[in-house]
Nucleic acid binder design. Structure first.
Lengths: 119, 119
DNA sequence: TCTACGTTTCAACGATAGTTGATATGTAGG
DNA sequence: CCTACATATCAACTATCGTTGAAACGTAGA
């Protein structure tokens, strides 16, 4: 991930409605949520939400697929990973103790119990 | 970290000059960099940089200390950790495989070789 | 094909953020 | 005390972002 992409991603997350959308989709899991459900969840008008979803999609943070009349959005976990990696890259220049908490914080996630940790 | 703080942090990072400042400080390590050095590094006028540094500081992403005539800024690694944790929290609702790459990406950092990983 | 539903696009307005220049603070040395 | 240096503050301007309402698109069922 280059700076331009990271910039777009952070700018996208730095907005109340968009951050809530991403959080909702991250917790929702890979099944995702329909645009209409998201509109109710974050309490935003449909047309306005559509604008934000487009921005999040362009930033590589979410993906979409059509299912009948609905459009289902899901978190782009790979994009989120890249963003985290971009932010913390080269944080260990001779002082691993300063960034270890970041690793520990994320490792505290239940993911560590998954069998695909190193996949 | 609550939503309001995360929002401020992401909005702070969603700006070219501020993102470069944070990246410069993250790679610089706990010793930090003087405001003047940062101004040259990111190629921003001093008064303008001061505005951005204030915003980053208010967002909990950097800290500052005075050393003689200079003010030294450093990355707030704890704040960065909290931010990462906020973004990925509850990402594993029954599907640990989707967020495992995020953990792996951060774990790829040399931090994993540090002796304070679980501290 | 017609209607209903879900979603997206567009133009326009109001609010907010970033830059600039001038000025103020605070610190060290002569 | 006075000057030089480093950084911070303030007001004003411009550009960009987010919201709103109206309208269009695409899909499914009658």
């Amino acid at each position: 991930m280059d700076e331009r992409q990271a910039l777009a991603a952070f700018a996208a997350l730095g907005q109340e409605h968009r951050l809530r959308v991403v959080r909702a989709l991250v917790t929702a899991g890979p099944n995702g949520l329909a645009a209409g459900v998201l509109a109710e969840t974050v309490n935003v008008a449909g047309n306005n939400l559509s604008f934000h979803l487009k921005e999040l999609s362009h930033a590589g943070l979410i993906t979409s697929r059509r299912e009948g009349k609905s459009v289902i959005y899901s978190a782009a976990y790979a994009g989120l990973s890249d963003l985290v990696q971009f932010l913390m890259r080269d944080c260990c220049q001779g002082h691993p103790e300063v960034c270890a908490p970041a690793v520990a914080a994320l490792a505290a996630c239940d993911c560590t119990t998954g069998d695909t940790l190193h996949a």
